[in-house]
Design a binder for these strands. Structure first.
Lengths: 198, 198
DNA sequence: TCTCAAGCGGAACGTTCACTCCGCTTGAGA
DNA sequence: TCTCAAGCGGAGTGAACGTTCCGCTTGAGA
């Protein structure tokens, strides 16, 4: 499921690969807490290593963030796969809540999620599966006819805003947001005053 | 409506106050285009002045951003006032679309909107009026009974995410987002799987 | 056990960027 | 018109931060 960024010329020494794992986890926590403007020194310190070690594994701070993005997108893709086994056209709803949970645990790198150049094919695969989930929901009458994949994008983007603004005070705010979006996209909801996006 | 940051010990010279106006407008445009990480030099250049002039009017870059925030909050408050004259319990919906438009024109400073320390009383007044709009909508059966002011916050926050992610390609994405949120909060929408926030 | 490629820490470096300083300019009151 | 407080531009300053470098350490294969 996880594709490593590291070329596989040679396996890492045991301590080195453990440090790599720690660095990624530390980056996830530090960026979630202080945003991506947190310094690399804090990430290294939280991982219990020096900055030199960080830079031995990741050529730039950007590459470290890209690894976080890749990990999150992997999770999203896996959620999409699992959602496609949900019966009754409810896969999309399950998917959106799963994505919300994944976003909440990785709120530090959300700003990079949808314009990262190194994960285009991964994102493409996610979109394909999203389209399938959307079709399934529509066929079962669980979502309005004019809903498009752009509305799923909107839900993702709105999640980012809610997660970055609500902070640690309201850890469940994103759930309510997803629930409102889902309710607004049901066929039973009133007609939308704004047309679907291209 | 607009409260100046400048102490009124002495009126500004005509050219100086014109430059001040230009600086604010330039900051709005530059930050909307490149985000708040854009340099002060670019703001000054766009305004047609040097950085020294910028710093004569605003003690720090932060103070300049705070001025943008204040301006936007002033707009929001004015929208809330106008919305309270809308009949039939539809003031809240009007308000949300107005706020969306104001956010769209000021997307550069949205990250600061809700944790700026210098505008607490202004925000408090907005919240009071939001509560009134919410009550009115509820009395007219235009919004679900369990909706709270926290749901209005969610709509604001989601707007930020949509505006920062959709960029200039999809200038109307925020309208669709507001429409979905409104539809999800109608009494006719299905019951929400997630309870209202505290 | 021995060897050494690989790994490590953290001081030092270079760049970026917010902010200051100062000599020149100018609007406006007398 | 004259004066000068106020305003102006932009080179210069200092701090923060991403990145590099190098001498020391260590896991693992022989």
């Amino acid at each position: 499921m996880t594709t490593s960024t590291e070329p596989e010329h040679r396996a890492l020494r045991r301590d080195a690969s453990e440090n790599r794992r720690r660095l990624i986890e530390a980056a996830r926590l530090v960026f979630a807490e202080h945003g991506m403007e947190a310094g690399v020194e804090e990430v290294a310190h939280r991982a219990g290593v020096g900055v030199g070690t960080l830079y031995r594994r990741f050529p730039t701070k950007d590459a470290l963030i890209a690894e976080l993005v890749r990990t999150l997108l992997d999770e999203v893709l896996e959620s999409a796969r699992q959602a496609s086994t949900v019966p009754g056209g409810d896969g999309l709803e399950h998917f959106l809540f799963d994505v919300g949970a994944a976003h909440a645990a990785n709120r530090g790198c959300l700003a990079r999620l949808w314009n990262d150049e190194t994960t285009t094919t991964l994102r493409q695969e996610i979109r394909t599966r999203m389209a399938t989930l959307l079709d399934d929901a529509r066929r079962h009458g669980r979502i309005r006819d004019d809903a498009t994949i752009a509305d799923v994008d909107l839900t993702f983007w709105s999640l980012r805003g809610v997660l970055e603004a609500s902070g640690h005070d309201l850890p469940d705010a994103w759930r309510r947001q997803v629930a409102i979006s889902v309710a607004g996209l049901r066929p039973s909801a009133e007609a939308l005053s704004q047309p679907a996006l291209a």
